[in-house]
Computed example of a mutant assay.
Amino acid sequence: MTGAERNVKRNTRDDIYNIFYSMELAQRLAADLYYPGCLSLERKRAAANSLATWERPAGMRAAYTQRPWSTQEDRVLLQINNPAAAADELGRTVMSCGLRLWRLRTGQVPMPSGQ
């Protein structure tokens, strides 16, 4: 319904499922569940209504913006061999570059052709 993918597994402390949504995904889910006139607890409806007023701060980037890696980006990353320097060059985060470099080195993703 919200477009979010979830890793479904029980927590280790008490063997229950904890479901967590935040930011825009939480707003969409709350709007779908707590529509005007729905049957709900007042405290839950109030919490859902408070989500509607939340706005992403100006400098806050979207947490997940899927952008597939191209063969050319893989080549540049391997050539630079430094996640921080590659992040500047490729317009990606240091974490993204570090993780991709690790996946390439460990064989979790195929090396670009010609490597």
Rank of each mutant, 00 (worst) to 15 (best):
A87D: 07
Y17V: 12
I80P: 01
N7D: 06
Q72L: 14
D14G: 02
N18K: 15
P57Q: 06
A30V: 04
L33N: 02
T71I: 11
L90Q: 00
N82L: 00
R61Y: 02
A46N: 08
R10E: 12
R13T: 14
A86Y: 07
L39V: 14
A86P: 04
P36T: 07
T2G: 15
L51R: 01
G107S: 04
R13N: 12
Y21S: 01
Y64V: 14
P110L: 14
R105V: 09
E24W: 00
Q66I: 04
V109T: 13
R10G: 01
K44Q: 15
R100D: 01
P112R: 12
T12M: 11
L29S: 03
Q66R: 14
R43I: 13
D32G: 09
S113G: 08
G114S: 03
Q115N: 11
N18L: 13
G37W: 02
T12V: 11
Q66E: 15
A46W: 01
Q72S: 10
G91T: 08
I16T: 15
Y21W: 14
R92A: 01
S70E: 11
L104E: 02
Q72F: 10
T93R: 05
L41K: 13
P68T: 14
V76A: 13
R67D: 10
C38S: 10
R45F: 03
A58C: 03
R6C: 09
K9M: 08
L25F: 12
A62G: 00
C38V: 15
M95W: 10
M1H: 12
W54E: 01
L51W: 03
Q115W: 15
F20T: 15
T12C: 12
M1P: 06
G59P: 00
L77I: 05
T65M: 09
Y35V: 08
T93S: 15
G3P: 07
S113Y: 01
R100Y: 02
A48C: 00
G107I: 04
A85F: 07
V109G: 03
N49G: 07
Y64F: 11
F20V: 11
G91H: 04
D88G: 14
S50M: 01
A86R: 05
E5H: 01
R10L: 15
R43A: 13
I19C: 08
G107D: 05
R105A: 13
M111F: 06
N81G: 13
G91M: 08
E5D: 07
E73Y: 01
S50L: 00
P36C: 08
R45I: 04
T71W: 05
S70W: 04
R45C: 09
D74F: 10
F20Q: 11
C97H: 03
T71K: 10
G59R: 10
L33Q: 09
I19D: 03
P83H: 00
R28G: 12
A26R: 08
N81E: 10
D74Q: 13
K9C: 07
P68S: 10
D88P: 00
R105Y: 05
G59H: 06
